[in-house]
Design a protein around this nucleic acid. Structure first.
Lengths: 302, 302
DNA sequence: GCAGGTGGTGCATTTTTTGCACCGCATCGG
DNA sequence: CCGATGCGGTGCAAAAAATGCACCACCTGC
């Protein structure tokens, strides 16, 4: 849609922090860009940027305008989706921000299932931590967010909640593997690998540990859940993960056990969208599929 | 905002039902208009109009696009209002669709009170019957609707409810004026003036009368509540009205009495907005003022 | 005080949009 | 049956708008 070009330019300037840089990014002269911005500010009736010595920065009015633009864009693509839909094409695009735990099994399967029925629908999957995911919704960068223990922000509208107990993952020959359920103190007494602070699993662990006046002191701390799963194979340590990101490989090499609910209540895996927003058809349908899939998914193990 | 011109043209074509007529309305050549429409359809990826022999008509895709445009426009003006607001100006515009009963006393007073504090805010008051008022919200033609007994449509979001008992209005020397409360049968036995079927008051009367296997048979039927109020002065008949549209003139020429709740439950005067829409600041504030004013307003008489 | 960055501007050039004339087509009325 | 009329669409030249280029004034940091 060419008529939104000016907004695209505004966004570019906001991102670049300088008109000249933005002009380069958008393959246009700084002069042309400058004039479009100025003209828009005239028509709109207010300046959008603070003119500083080293460039420009959005002022509050600019923030509002940019938000309006993103909302408009989102609504427009929703309309395009609906139009394609009523011509019987079932086209569209779903963008989802999610936690890492969804990557190995759950999401690939769900996306494949959806695409099996609607070949015209494409996906973008953005891995974000729980804070970023909500930001992603607020800027209309993603339609949906599926995150473990999000930091309830105002704009986050919960679509579905799936409880997930934190599990311990370890090699099958680990001493703790003999018990069907583990106590938190046993885990903390054992050398362990843990995700870094910005993840929900770690947040729950830290919280529960503090309650017992203990501390989580990982031998390896990482941002990658995949690394955790693989690391426990190389050293006799334990890792933490939620069941939706786990699956028994079948060769008996690895096992997982839930941590007792007495020590650690289940966290919530939450599917959400931007509050009050009307989602494109494809996203709305996919969200429904996710909801029912999550309902049937085992909260404990699998 | 010039960049929305194409949408304005689309709207004009939809309204005129023909490109040539729309071109005249918009002071532009039919050729230019035609090309803009065609180009937009190209970019958008779908036709918006059915090309008929005698002109064009919006197809479903076009309806969606037009709705998107109106929503965009509404959001944009909201943003403009907010921007003006944060520069401390308190500007804005409030458009309200309302029933006739609000015209003589309630709305003028409320608007004046609001404008006394915010001189920069302007108003448009559109008198609509209860069906039209909801339509008005759905097309973003009005921000608020204040209607008696609306025909609950899906897009109508209730902001406030104020019960209003139907009152009988008559000259002070009318025989029925002696009773403090009237029965419906007495009213129907007396020559009466009533509003036409599309109004809430009449709807309630018809409903209640049918329950008692009676019929409302007015000697004068009108769309004007003002006419009703004045007509009862000239002939010894009674009229029907809700208390918010009534006020004792003080000279004792006219009186009003409620109809017993046994015969006729109070109707609801409802303040509403388009579902899910974020109102401009001025409209939102005015809606709050209306809510509190309605809460204090007598539901019976005054 | 100079070098390198910024936003803004006058003017010629390029791109886009518009107006005019005209086409093919469907409908309607004699 | 056949013009007359009104419709959407198109080729081409004119008008209007956006752009690129060169340049200005300004600020900042070295």
């Amino acid at each position: 849609m060419r008529y939104l070009q000016t907004f695209r330019l505004i966004e570019a300037v906001a991102r670049a922090g300088s008109m000249r840089k933005a002009a380069q990014d958008m393959n246009i002269t700084a002069s042309a860009l400058n004039r479009r911005i100025n003209r828009f500010e005239d028509e709109f009736g207010a300046e959008l940027f603070e003119r500083l010595a080293g460039g420009v920065r959005l002022n509050p009015a600019g923030e509002l305008v940019l938000h309006h633009y993103r909302a408009t864009l989102s609504d427009l693509s929703r309309v395009q989706g609906q139009v394609a839909d009523l011509s019987g094409e079932r086209r569209g695009h779903v963008s989802i921000a999610c936690s890492q735990a969804l990557l190995p099994y759950f999401l690939p399967r769900q996306i494949a299932r959806y695409r099996a029925e609607h070949r015209g629908v494409t996906f973008s999957v953005n891995v974000r931590d729980r804070a970023q995911a909500e930001q992603e919704l607020a800027t209309y960068s993603s339609d949906l967010a599926l995150v473990f223990e999000p930091v309830y922000l105002v704009d986050f509208e919960v679509v579905h909640v799936a409880p997930q107990a934190v599990n311990v993952v370890m090699r099958a020959d680990h001493p703790l593997a003999r018990k069907p359920e583990l106590r938190l103190r046993d885990c903390l007494d054992t050398p362990h690998v843990a995700p870094s602070a910005k993840f929900g699993v770690r947040h729950l662990l830290d919280f529960a540990a503090r309650r017992g006046t203990r501390r989580v002191s990982p031998v390896v701390e990482t941002e990658s859940f995949e690394l955790i799963r693989h690391y426990v194979l190389h050293e006799g340590v334990i890792g933490f993960q939620i069941p939706i990101g786990l699956r028994d490989p079948g060769d008996g090499s690895i096992v997982f056990r839930p941590i007792s609910e007495r020590d650690l209540p289940p966290g919530n895996l939450i599917l959400g969208q931007m509050r009050g927003r009307t989602l494109p058809v494809a996203s709305a349908r996919f969200a429904m599929q996710l909801s029912t899939a999550l309902k049937d998914y085992p909260g404990e193990m699998r």
